[in-house]
């Protein structure tokens, strides 16, 4: 993969993200709050996150499962992202190290 291709991809993805950020503001007058699209968008994130986590755990094996569970539980109890990430990272690292030792 050459640098130009990669930079082009980053630019396209960056534009997409910015378009999503300004899109709601610009289109707010035409997006009905009770419409199908608005409701789908409102309900989508949690479901997308779950699907993403399941696929991630599938590819990450036991360290992935343990690390994700520890991050999730730590977040639920502390509501601190840095604490959850640190704990999850440590748990995944320990599980991976035990598996290879």
């Amino acid at each position: 993969m050459d640098d130009l291709h990669l930079l082009g991809a980053i630019a396209v993805l960056g534009l997409t993200c910015y378009a999503m950020r300004v899109g709601g503001y610009v289109l707010a007058t035409s997006l009905r709050d009770d419409g199908f699209v608005a409701r789908f968008l409102r309900l989508a994130p949690g479901n997308l996150f779950i699907a993403f986590i399941v696929a991630g755990c599938l590819s990450g094996g036991l360290p992935g499962l343990i690390g994700t569970l520890v991050a999730l539980v730590t977040m639920a109890f502390t509501a601190r992202e840095w604490a959850a990430l640190g704990a999850g990272f440590g748990a995944a690292l320990a599980t991976a190290a035990l598996g290879t030792s």
């Binding site: 993403f52 991630g56 990450g60 360290p63 995944a92 690292l93």
Partner: peptide, 15 residues
């Protein structure tokens, strides 16, 4: 391996 799992953990913190 643990670093590669961080994206999944990022998302887990949003759950």
């Amino acid at each position: 391996l643990a670093a590669a799992l961080l994206p999944t953990m990022f998302i887990a913190t949003l759950i």
